[in-house]
């Protein structure tokens, strides 16, 4: 039996790929590119002056600062934790390892609104901790610490999840050899382990930063929407939008779009570099 495809005219065999590529391109254009385009168009729809006034507004600047603060805290804490957790999970065997890895994944399974809610329940005014906090004058909910806590919580799994499989696949032979040759913990980590995980780590830090910068639901619950105090950039966008200051909302959004484009570019560069190095190592 001869294959149908071979006897068919060349045009017919190209028809299906062209249709598939066409539908995919249309989907990507409508679902991914148009939303970006509409933000930029709306942001500049009332001219450059209005745009500049919206993004240089004192509340926008304070929101930007708080967003950067929360993102930095989340990236730093989760990098330290993610590396420690990945090291523990892949370098030793101990009772309760399965429970630990499941616990680390919880923030991904939880709605952002619920992530915010648990901090209100823990530190809010109905919590048993509240009198103690009150006594020492510590405010967590409806204040900056709450925003940072909520942001850190939703990004907990990023680093650990990305680094664990890489360390798992590497095995522990190299570290054991290093121990036998008398190397200490920091030497082993810096010289033996780190070179293998640096791309995975960088990649996960980029994704962690993206999520931290854009987190809305969890932060919205704990912030209390105090302008100039507990407003992050995404929350500032919401406030402007609900006040019908549409141009200003889109202008501030365009800053976040710029952030997203930078993050996306960095992600792709890191992935490309990692793949290149990977193929060099194999062959």
């Amino acid at each position: 039996m001869s294959g149908k495809g071979k006897n068919a005219p060349r045009g017919a065999s190209l028809w299906v790929p062209r249709l598939f590529i066409g539908i995919s391109a249309l989907f990507a254009a409508v679902m991914l590119i148009l939303p970006l385009a509409v933000v930029l168009t709306e942001a500049f729809s009332s001219g450059l002056q209005v745009f500049l006034r919206a993004v240089s507004d004192i509340y926008a600047r304070k929101a930007l600062f708080l967003t950067l603060e929360a993102t930095a805290a989340s990236v730093f804490l989760n990098t330290v934790f993610g590396l420690a957790a990945a090291w523990v999970v892949t370098r030793y065997s101990f009772a309760g390892k399965g429970v630990l890895t499941t616990l680390i994944d919880i923030p991904f399974a939880v709605s952002p609104v619920i992530a915010g809610m648990i901090f209100i329940l823990t530190f809010g005014r109905l919590s048993w901790l509240h009198p103690v906090l009150e006594e020492h004058g510590i405010r967590i909910v409806f204040a900056t610490p709450g925003i940072i806590l909520a942001t850190v919580f939703v990004t907990i799994p990023f680093v650990a999840r990305e680094v664990i499989p890489v360390l798992e696949a590497r095995g522990t032979d190299e570290e054991q050899a290093a121990v036998l040759m008398g190397a200490g913990f920091f030497t082993i980590f810096r010289r033996v382990t780190f070179p293998h995980i640096r791309w995975a780590l960088l990649y996960s830090v980029i994704l962690c930063a993206a999520r931290a910068m854009g987190e809305f639901g969890a932060v919205s619950v704990v912030s209390g929407h105090l302008r100039g105090k507990t407003n992050t950039l995404p929350l500032h966008v919401e406030i402007l939008y609900s006040e019908y200051q549409f141009t200003a909302a889109f202008a501030v959004s365009s800053l976040l779009v710029a952030g997203a484009v930078i993050i996306l570019t960095a992600r792709n560069i890191v992935e490309f570099a990692a793949r290149k190095e990977d193929s060099l190592n194999v062959h």
Binding site: L32, P35, L36, V38, V39, L207, A210, R211, M213, G214, E215, F216, G217, L233, P234, L235, V237, E238, Y241, A249, F250, S253, L256, V257, G259, A260, V261, I263, L264, R267
Partner: peptide
């Protein structure tokens, strides 16, 4: 992109 773009921005866009 949907992971990098803040959800509030996606919402209003």
């Amino acid at each position: 992109l949907p992971f990098a773009l803040p959800t509030a921005v996606a919402g209003i866009a």
